[in-house]
């Protein structure tokens, strides 16, 4: 573990640099291939609508993977993230145009968990089209 963020330097309320992540249909096709999740709701508009969705939606795991980048970019060493969980509350709807959708992620230190283990809890908020798409998104991060 070689994060450069010092446990002593963070406080409850410390905000991590927010980021926004673009998502297009091409992004989803690429993620499908890399992750092995070929569920057609993530690339086939006709199928997505037949099962009651408004349009093609992003993989929940794609959104989860993007959101944690706010934490891993902050920590430097991705292995500093020792625990990460979320609920999938709303889908990220991805229209078939050149803009697609955007996932906006902010995060802050919500608790200092253990002075000896030097762990903090980071709470994340992920928004797309004005709606929270992840619920109770939390990571435990081991700092220096």
């Amino acid at each position: 573990m070689a994060t450069t963020v010092s446990y002593d330097a963070v406080e409850v309320g410390t905000e991590l640099p927010a980021q926004s992540f673009p998502v297009t249909r091409a992004t989803l096709v690429r993620y499908a291939g890399a992750s092995g999740d070929f569920n057609p709701i993530h690339w086939n508009e006709k199928f997505a609508k037949e099962v009651g969705l408004p349009d093609v939606i992003a993989h929940g795991m794609f959104t989860m993977a993007e959101a944690i980048r706010v934490v891993t970019d902050w920590a430097g060493d991705p292995a500093a993230v020792i625990d990460y969980g979320t609920k999938f509350t709303k889908p990220v709807v991805v229209p078939n145009d050149d803009k697609g959708a955007t996932v906006e992620v902010s995060a802050k230190v919500a608790a200092k968990l253990d002075d000896e283990a030097r762990t903090v809890r980071v709470d994340l908020v992920a928004m797309s089209d004005g709606q929270k798409v992840l619920g109770m998104a939390r990571a435990v991060v081991k700092l220096a």
Binding site: M1, A2, F21, T27, R30, Y31, G33, A34, S35, M61, F62, M64, A65, E66, I68, R69, T72, D73, G76, D77, P78, A79, V81, Y84
Partner: peptide, 30 residues
């Protein structure tokens, strides 16, 4: 890592991963 646009060198560069104390490149958390 490329499919989620993540350029962290710990995922792609064994030297960078070793500098962080890992035996080889590591995988993203998910």
């Amino acid at each position: 890592a490329e499919s989620v646009g993540d350029a962290n060198p710990a995922y792609t560069d064994p030297e960078a991963a070793r500098a962080l104390g890992h035996p080889d490149v590591i995988a993203p958390p998910t």
